[in-house]
């Protein structure tokens, strides 16, 4: 099964288990994104609610439903649309419980397809998760299909507004990972003693491409970890702080400045002040994503750019 099929199954199971879950968004009855395919015929019009193209309106409506007994799941067409309705996510959903005296939960799940498979240009390619992390909204990004059920369980148990970022590049992926400890926060995907690559859901396929082209020595000696808890809460931080490798390469398809990769780097430096590893980053170079293929490719993390880091820094002999 693909990432998208597992995601659909996980949401379907939630809807089947608990009638207070409602599925809301644009084109969700016809299931255009693939997540809610078949939901309308199974759960009906009262629980699968098509909306106009009114992100602020339906995100506000989700707040009203959530404070009044329901658990809305709000599907976005793509994560960049959060900028249209950030007031309802941050000022309203996120702050409601606190500002009314911590008396009522606001359980909302925002499903946010994020990033690009290429060719989507400036308005449809963004990875916006650091924005919500910065604002304190619980944010998660399952990097592989094996992780989706645990992320969904965690999002439900939070009883709060939770954004689940879904890397569109992984939607059709059927890559199988052998993961000993599946959790919603931090995954150990591959062992290796010398270098650690830390990736996210938007860079996992790029890192895999790098491994497919790298020398056997590099592949053998490089570990791969994945951060899925975009708030770097304590369970995730504990893992990051205990990394043993002396060199760390952080790969993320979002911009580094004031961003997620920078925060990971900061946390590593904070925790290892005396024996800080060497840290390199391979991130998206700008939030202005060009349509032209070559320019777009150069902007985003790629196997070539990861390879350059190994070459330029002489890591593991510097030869890929």
């Amino acid at each position: 099964m693909t990432y998208l099929e597992i995601l659909r199954s996980a949401v379907y199971a939630l809807m089947e288990r608990d009638e207070t879950y409602l599925y809301i968004g644009e084109d969700v009855r016809s299931g255009q994104k693939g997540i809610s395919d078949g939901f309308f015929s199974k759960f009906g019009a009262q629980r699968v609610i098509d909306t106009p193209i009114s992100e602020s309106g339906f995100c506000g409506m989700a707040v009203g439903l959530a404070v009044n007994g329901f658990r809305p799941i709000v599907e976005f067409n793509f994560s960049g649309l959060m900028f249209v309705c950030l007031d309802q996510i941050f000022n309203q959903a996120f702050k409601f419980k606190f500002m009314t005296g911590n008396k009522r939960n606001v359980p909302i799940i925002y499903l946010m397809p994020t990033g690009t498979k290429g060719g989507l240009a400036g308005h449809h390619s963004d990875n916006t998760y650091a924005t919500l992390s910065h604002l304190g909204v619980i944010s998660l990004m399952p990097a592989c299909k094996e992780q989706i059920p645990s992320v969904m369980d965690y999002a439900c148990s939070a009883n709060a507004p939770v954004a689940i970022f879904l890397p569109v590049e992984e939607f059709r992926s059927d890559t199988v990972y052998d993961i000993a400890d599946i959790n919603p926060f931090f995954l150990r995907l591959k062992c290796g003693d010398d270098v650690a690559i830390i990736c996210t859901g938007t860079s996992i396929s790029t890192v895999n491409k790098f491994f497919n082209t790298a020398s056997k020595s590099i592949v053998r000696r490089t570990a791969l970890y994945c951060v899925s808890d975009l708030n770097l809460s304590i369970k995730c931080l504990d893992e990051i702080r205990h990394l043993k490798e002396k060199t760390i390469v952080i790969v993320d398809d979002a911009t580094e400045d004031f961003g997620f990769a920078s925060q990971i780097e900061l946390e590593i430096r904070r925790s290892k002040q005396h024996e800080c590893p060497e840290i390199y980053t391979v991130c998206r170079l700008s939030n202005l994503v060009p349509f032209r293929e070559g320019l777009e490719h150069a902007l985003r993390p790629s196997a070539e750019r990861i390879n350059e880091v190994f070459l330029d820094s002489g890591l593991l002999g510097g030869k890929a």
Binding site: Q46, F58, G60, M61, G64, N68, F70
Partner: peptide
């Protein structure tokens, strides 16, 4: 900002 929230509260009661 409270206006769409009211719509959600109302939709909940309607359901």
């Amino acid at each position: 900002a409270g206006v769409p929230i009211a719509c959600g509260v109302s939709l909940a009661e309607k359901i």
